[in-house]
Every structure is written in C-alpha cells, then in structure tokens.
C-alpha cells in the first residue's frame, strides 16, 4: 500500500520526465520581438503616403489618375472625359529606405521622395506602440512654360516646393490601422494675399480590412495655415484597396486632383461637400529586382 502511495506521488514526476518536448521548445521561444507588418496594403493611403516602405530590391510602378468632377454632369460623362495622371516609381534601397520619383500631369510637376522607416511597432521582448516613417520630398512645377507668364521676377527656383512629413501609424488589429500625418509644405513662391510660404497640416487616415484582400480607406488633411480668403479646401478621400498578388488597385473618391503634397494639401480647389468629387485609381505593380539571399 505504501509503495502504491509512493508511485502515486511520483506519477506526475514520471510524466514530467517524459514531458512534451514541444512545451520545452515553446518555453524557449517566448522571448522574441515580433514586428508588426502589413499595416497598410500600399505605399499610398489615398492621395498621400502610408508608413509602408518598399522592401529592399523591390520596385513599385504606380499609375494613378484622377478623373474630372462627377458633378460635371452628363456632358462631361460625370468627369470621365478628363483625367490627371501621375506615373511613378518607388524603389526599396534598404528595407527601411525607399526612394521614389514621379511625374504628375497636374501643373506638369516632377516629384521625388525619400522615405525612412524610423520606428517599428512591435510586441514581445521589445514592445513599441506605433510605427513611424519620415518622408522628405521635393517637387518642381514645369507649368507654366515661361517664367514671364507668371511675373517679371519669377525665377526657376520659385517653381520648387518641399514636403516634410512624419507618418505615424498603429495597427490596432489585423483589420484596423490608423495613421496620423503631421506635415509641412514649403513653397518657394506663393501669392502672398492667399497663402503662406510654410504651411502646416495634420493628416488623419486609416483602413479597415473587409476581407483578406479588400480594405476600405480614408484620408483627410487639415491645413492649419489656410488664410481666411484662401480659394483652397482641405483634401478628403475615401477609397477601396483591392490586392491581387503583385498588384494593388486603389479606387478612390476625393476632392483633390493633384498627387504631390503641394497640390493636394495646399492647392485643392474643389469642395468635397459641394459635390466636386473626383473618381480615381492608384494601380501598383511590384517587381522584385534584387532577389533576396
């Protein structure tokens, strides 16, 4: 009887000695840092950027356009008769560093950006609540063709504008990501009665995933430097992201037609709530130029 009792006492020990190896492996693997990934599907939210950078060695071709206003009526085929286009390339130099160039038919603008992934949301050994990417950009307006068309003292350098943004995003769950975009746009030349040279704006946006491949998005920028008699409006956009393999299709409705920060943050001429809404697409295709080892 006593022996039986001992056996009984020892039985858990025996079981432990044989225990499952998997539990041991799991115990060892607990202390890792898990970085959040795929906060957004693309490098663009709607008009502006997301925190996402291209991975090292991947090249993204972006074809984006904005049709005319849908309140143009039947004569304008609800805006479909005209379109403004931006063609762009984004390349991942490093996973944390992207470079992009583009041509926007709005104001015949050439633009260029550098995106630096500064902070990454993570859980586990190292927990951090959000991701942050710094964006620095410049844009050059080729329109109008001659400096003298603007004024006698207008110089080429006056065609330049610069953008600085800190994109801050948190993926709250698999399906919900939100982003804040404190932004500054500097324009070398402005009509002083209507605008400041330095304009500060705060953007807010997010996405809700409906299925694994489809998400709805929104993006709004509030320009704090807008003067009382400014002819411009703040840009608002709603979109649907559809992802198929290497493509992302973004279907958007917005009051902005330009696709550089200067154009959509500070020079949006249409009022969303007045029905000046434009349909648009961003279509991206990613190519892996450099194969990972």
């Amino acid at each position: 009887m006593k022996r039986l009792f001992i056996l009984f006492l020892l039985s858990p020990c025996l079981a432990f000695a044989q225990d499952d190896l998997l539990a041991e492996l799991e115990k060892d693997s607990g202390n890792e840092t898990e970085y959040t990934f795929a906060t957004f599907k693309g490098t663009r939210l709607a008009n502006g950027h997301t925190i996402e950078t291209k991975n090292e060695g991947s090249l993204e071709f972006i074809f984006a356009h904005r049709f005319g206003a849908i309140n143009g009526g039947w004569y304008e085929m609800y805006g479909l008769d005209e379109a403004l286009v931006r063609l762009g390339l984004d390349y991942g130099i490093k996973d944390w560093l992207s470079f992009s160039i583009g041509r926007n038919s709005f104001d015949k603008t050439m633009d260029s950006y550098v995106k630096i992934r500064a902070l990454r949301q993570s859980t586990g050994a190292k927990t951090f609540p959000f991701s942050a990417t710094v964006l620095l950009g410049g844009a050059y307006k080729f329109s109008p063709e001659n400096n003298s068309d603007v004024s006698d003292d207008f110089e080429n350098v006056d065609r330049l504008s610069y953008t600085g943004q800190v994109l801050i995003a948190r993926k709250f769950s698999t399906n919900l990501s939100l982003q804040l975009m404190p932004s500054i746009v500097h324009k070398n030349a402005v009509v002083a009665s209507q605008e400041e040279n330095d304009q500060f704006a705060l953007g807010f946006g997010g996405r809700i995933k409906l299925t694994k491949s489809v998400a709805i998005t929104t993006e709004y920028y509030h320009n704090f430097s807008m003067k009382d008699d400014s002819p411009y409006f703040n840009p608002l956009a709603f979109g649907i992201d559809i992802e198929t393999g290497g493509h992302v299709f973004q279907l958007v409705i917005t009051n902005a037609v330009g696709l550089t920060e200067r154009a959509f943050i500070t020079e949006t001429r249409d009022d969303f709530w007045d029905g000046d809404i434009h349909l648009g697409f961003n279509v991206t295709r990613t190519f892996q130029l450099k194969k990972a080892k």
Binding site: N55, E56, S58, E243, G245, T286, Q288, K291
Partner: peptide, 8 residues
C-alpha cells in the same frame, strides 16, 4: 525571394 510574397 519575393518579399511581397512573404508579406502576403
């Protein structure tokens, strides 16, 4: 090899 595939 394709990082986008890895994300997907």
């Amino acid at each position: 090899e394709k990082k986008l595939m890895q994300v997907h």
